[in-house]
Each structure stands twice: as structure tokens, then as C-alpha cells.
């Protein structure tokens, strides 16, 4: 669903033509194991991409190269016009524009929800404490748990922790949000509350890349499904194309196993 004519309006799924992530022949080695074997793709602003594939296919690695939690070994990654390389200033700039939500939430256990959310705002963004706290509260309201602001992460349920993690990433006002299997560590009854937050975020026009096994979610909100296997993109397409008429054999095999 690429709508080239209209400028971004905040409509559901309205994707602009502007290329915000460009990956060209990206490779990544872990010792002798090649996790990414020349991955090439383009993500446009406001696009929601759901990445699926068998375990070990390089999905998470790909996501993590995008904010340099893993450094890629070959190829190019350009994010919002800035090339990701060993230049630390570029890395910092890109990290401040790219939020990530982890499978295991990774909240800071020694800090309250309030401090978890305001820490980077005051220390990286140099925001005033009162402004940072106001922003934190408004984002917690957006994810539906403002009353938890003074709790410690261990006092929250998994679903609540993940919603705080999403709010914490959003607090940095990123242009892109990465989700690395955000619901895989959650009990079934908590998955919905996190997916609801993500759906709302997608509708608001956020550019999102999401590694997920939630096919219902992928069908509903993705503009594009990207199927990865063995470190490359095997097939991409709109959910309608992808799920009903997959072209590649590997895709068909994978879908037959999970659906």
C-alpha cells in the first residue's frame, strides 16, 4: 500500500514515498556463522513492516543492526539520510531516532517507572525534569497505565512492563520503532494489551519494523510482510499477497508449518 501522491496525513497505513531505511547488501558474521548474507531492503516513512521467519534466520540480528546494537560487517545501512558506520556521532544520532523494544522488556530494575522513562530524557535530551515527567506521564496514559508511574518494574506484570518499555522508547520521540519479538515472553492473556498498544502506534503513522510470530497482528496492521530465511529476505509483499499467494517454496513451507 504505497500511496505516492498524498503527503503524510495520519491516516491508517498512509505511507509516504520517503525512504527512511535503506539497506544494501548487509552482511553480519558471528565468528564462523554468517547471520546476514547480503540483505537488501528499503523501508519508507510511516510504513509498518512485520518480519517473520524461522528461528536463526537473522530477523533479530537484522533489527539490531539498524541501531547498531550489532555492527554490520559489510554492505551499507542508511537511516534517515545518515550512514551507519564507525563514526560515533552518527551512531548516537541514529540511536536517538530509532527506538527499540526488546523481547525481555529490559527495563532498569533499580529505577522506578518514572525514572526509567525520564533518565534518557534528562541525561541525553537535556530536558527539564518537570517536562520529562510530564511527557512520561502522558505516554503512560497513552499505553494505559499512568497509575503505575511510581512502581518498580518487578512490581508490574509482564504486559505492563512491556507497555512501559514501549512508552520509554516513545519518550525519546523516535522516527522509527523496532520491536524484537515484543510479545514472545508474555503470558497469552497479556499479549493482547501489548498488541493493542502497537496497533494504536501503527495507526498514528509511526514507522515500525516488528519481528513477530503474531500472524493476526501482521495481517491486520502490516503494510508489508518480510519473510527471512538463512540471512536473506526470501519474499516480501502485502499481507494479502503474502498469506494467500506466496511465491517461493520456502515461504510456502514455512506458512504451512505455522498456519
Amino acid at each position: 500500500m504505497i500511496d505516492g501522491e498524498s503527503p503524510p496525513t495520519g491516516d491508517a497505513g498512509a505511507t509516504s514515498q520517503r525512504e527512511i531505511i535503506v539497506c544494501e547488501d548487509v552482511t553480519k558474521w558471528f565468528g564462523d556463522f554468517q547471520a546476514l548474507r547480503g540483505l537488501t531492503t528499503i523501508v519508507r516513512e510511516r510504513e509498518v513492516v512485520v518480519i517473520i521467519g524461522p528461528s536463526g534466520s537473522g530477523k533479530s540480528t537484522f533489527l539490531r543492526t539498524l541501531n547498531r546494537l550489532e555492527a554490520h560487517d559489510g554492505g551499507r545501512i542508511v537511516i534517515d539520510g545518515v550512514e551507519l558506520n564507525n563514526d560515533l556521532r552518527n551512531v548516537e544520532k541514529i540511536r536517538s531516532e530509532v527506538g527499540i523494544v526488546f523481547q525481555q522488556f529490559n527495563l532498569f530494575p533499580h529505577l522506578t517507572v518514572r525514572r526509567n522513562m525520564t533518565l534518557a530524557l534528562t541525561h541525553v535530551r537535556h530536558m527539564k525534569k518537570a517536562d520529562a515527567e510530564a511527557l512520561a506521564l502522558s505516554l503512560l496514559e497513552r499505553v494505559g497505565i499512568p497509575e503505575q508511574i511510581d512502581k518498580y518494574p518487578a512490581q508490574l506484570s509482564g504486559g505492563q512492563q512491556q507497555r512501559v518499555a514501549i512508552a520509554r522508547a516513545l519518550a525519546m520521540q523516535p522516527k522509527i520503532m523496532l520491536f524484537d519479538e515484543p510479545t514472545s515472553a508474555l503470558d497469552p492473556e497479556m499479549i493482547k494489551e501489548v498488541l493493542d498498544v502497537m496497533k494504536e502506534l501503527a495507526r498514528s503513522g509511526m514507522t515500525m519494523l516488528c519481528v513477530s510470530h503474531e500472524m493476526g497482528f501482521a495481517r491486520e496492521v502490516a503494510d508489508r510482510i518480510m519473510f527471512m530465511d538463512s540471512g536473506v529476505v526470501v519474499e516480501e509483499g502485502t499481507p494479502a499477497e503474502f498469506f494467500t499467494a506466496p511465491k517461493e517454496d520456502r515461504t510456502k513451507l514455512f506458512l504451512s508449518q505455522i498456519l
Binding site: 546494537l69 536517538s96 527506538g99 529490559n106 527495563l107 533518565l119 534518557a120 541525553v124 522508547a169 525519546m172
Partner: peptide, 9 residues
């Protein structure tokens, strides 16, 4: 990693 992703270094 969580800290780095928030721009803390």
C-alpha cells in the same frame, strides 16, 4: 543494550 538504545553511552 537497553541503555545504549536510549542514547546513553
Amino acid at each position: 543494550e537497553a541503555g545504549q538504545a536510549l542514547g546513553l553511552g
